[in-house]
Design a protein around this nucleic acid. Structure first.
Length: 472
DNA sequence: ATGTCC
């Protein structure tokens, strides 16, 4: 595996058979995965072999090893040229993503209420493996309504306000969701988890705007220095996981019939225009809507606490996924092409004037929400014109230590107490969960967003600092 | 990420 530096923030993996296109990694040398220690660059090259892939197999500055595709990978396939869709290019946590809300509360007022807020959030935010959810669905029919309607259905049922939807990617629901393509086991796992955080790196944090890099854009997003915010990071729980599992198996079985060979069976895929490709996209869209409804429900739970304890509502800045495949139109080779853009651990970042933006964000671009590791900083970025990676950028800090290594490193330490000593109030569901997510197990998210910005993938708007963590 | 192996 050889990397050729093309510019300060861009490295190329030259095309060699069976790659159909080169690999491109956006990074600075310090962020590049260690060759040998991490197979993610081999994965970038493997993705470049997929039928119909356009231009390059891209990796964001937070790239690391994943299932088949690297996490932090972007691959677009040309639908009309036999382009494929691959569940491994979306990931197990379908439409995992981030939403950011602002409170009418200044950081200076927070010490007075933070403990009461955290004590209110603690029982209000179901989290951890399995157990608990804000919303008890009546029956399968209501689950189907969630799978079709996402946040839109949640708001219709009174869980939120119409303005929320204007600030959601896809206005709160992906079209073309097909609940009939969701398997029975996925349905069973999904029935009792709508409105729950999950575990791992998912969280709800109370944050404050620490630093503003672009005042006009921050103002357009509704962010000012010192403003208290809430960030929610979660996904489609067991339902999305089961859908990914089911369709990897289905696609493994039909690849020979479609004449597709891949260098890694975890890259199982099928043409977008095939029964299996369409079925996956229908199920994937259903899981995406489940994830969006999930974030909407947790927003409502947090709103009730903020209203009761601090007398403030929460306004939605934006809600955006970082694990999804979307059929999008992009200008390439002098024409408009329909592409299936896989973003796995990569955030969509629409530039100013994009037609999919709400009118009040048209001049400034799409808010891009980048969570940092637990109790550190998170970032708000904005999309820029000329993004070379199909309007995509990074998604977070990226692990440097596995969960097991982190747990060993945390032995004898009290992660919760260490965070509290730095002024971060923590309400975790388990000691083990906190240990696995200790900040030392992650890269510096600041270096990641600076590289993404330097590479022309996005622009920095604001840095948020963590003041309270609710974890699974 | 995930009822961390049906």
């Amino acid at each position: 595996m050889e990397l050729v530096q093309e510019s300060p923030y861009r490295f190329r993996i030259d095309r060699e058979a069976p790659m159909r296109v080169p690999g491109v990694v956006f990074a600075v040398p310090e962020l590049l995965p260690e060759v040998g220690a991490d197979r993610s660059l081999d994965q970038v090259a493997n993705v470049a072999t997929l039928p119909g892939i356009v231009e390059a197999s891209y990796a964001m500055p937070d790239v690391h090893w994943g299932y088949g595709f690297p996490i932090g990978g972007v691959a677009a396939t040309d639908v009309a040229a036999g382009g494929v869709v691959s569940p491994g290019g979306v990931g197990f946590d379908i439409s995992c993503g981030v939403r950011l809300l602002t409170a009418e509360l200044d950081r200076a007022e927070l010490p007075r209420v933070i403990e009461a807020l955290m004590d209110g959030l603690d029982p209000a935010i179901p989290r951890g493996m399995g157990r608990g959810a804000v919303w008890q669905l009546a029956d399968r029919a209501e689950l189907d309504a969630v799978l079709r309607g996402g946040s839109r259905y949640a708001v219709e049922r009174g869980h939120g306000v119409p303005r929320d939807l204007a600030r959601c990617e896809d206005d709160g629901a992906v079209t073309d969701a097909d609940p009939a393509q969701v398997g029975e086991r996925a349905v069973q796992r999904g029935q009792g988890q709508v409105g729950s955080l999950g575990s791992g790196n998912h969280f709800l944090e109370v944050q404050a705007v620490e630093e503003v890099y672009d005042e006009p854009v921050a103002a357009a997003f509704g962010l000012r220095p010192g403003q208290v915010c809430v960030m929610i990071h979660c996904g489609s729980r067991g339902l999305g996981h089961q859908i990914c599992t089911d369709y990897v198996r289905i696609m493994e079985g039909v690849m020979p019939r479609h004449g597709i060979e891949v260098p890694d069976r975890q890259l199982a895929c099928a043409p977008v225009d095939s029964p299996e490709g369409r079925a996956y996209l229908g199920a994937m869209a259903a899981a995406a809507n489940y994830a969006r409804a999930n974030r909407q429900l947790l927003t409502e739970a947090a709103r009730r606490v903020f209203t009761r304890v601090a007398g403030t509502d929460l306004d939605l800045v934006y809600d955006v996924s970082h694990n999804l495949a979307k059929i999008e139109e992009h200008e390439r080779d002098g024409g408009t092409r329909r592409l299936c853009v896989h973003r796995k651990g990569a955030t969509r970042a629409l530039p100013p004037d994009h037609p999919d933006l709400p009118a009040d964000l048209r001049d400034v671009g799409q808010p891009v929400l980048i969570p940092g590791s637990m109790g550190t900083s998170s970032y708000v970025l904005t999309g820029v014109a000329g993004n070379p990676a199909f309007a995509s950028t990074c998604h977070g800090a990226g692990r440097t230590r596995s969960r097991g290594e982190a747990t060993r490193a945390a032995r004898g330490q009290d992660v919760r107490r260490d965070l509290a000593a730095r002024g971060v109030a923590v309400r975790g569901a388990s000691r083990k969960g906190l240990a696995e997510e200790m900040p030392d197990a992650y890269k510096d998210v600041s270096a990641v967003v600076e590289a993404a910005s330097g590479a022309g993938l996005c622009r920095l708007v604001a840095r948020l600092t963590s003041l309270g963590v609710v974890k699974g």
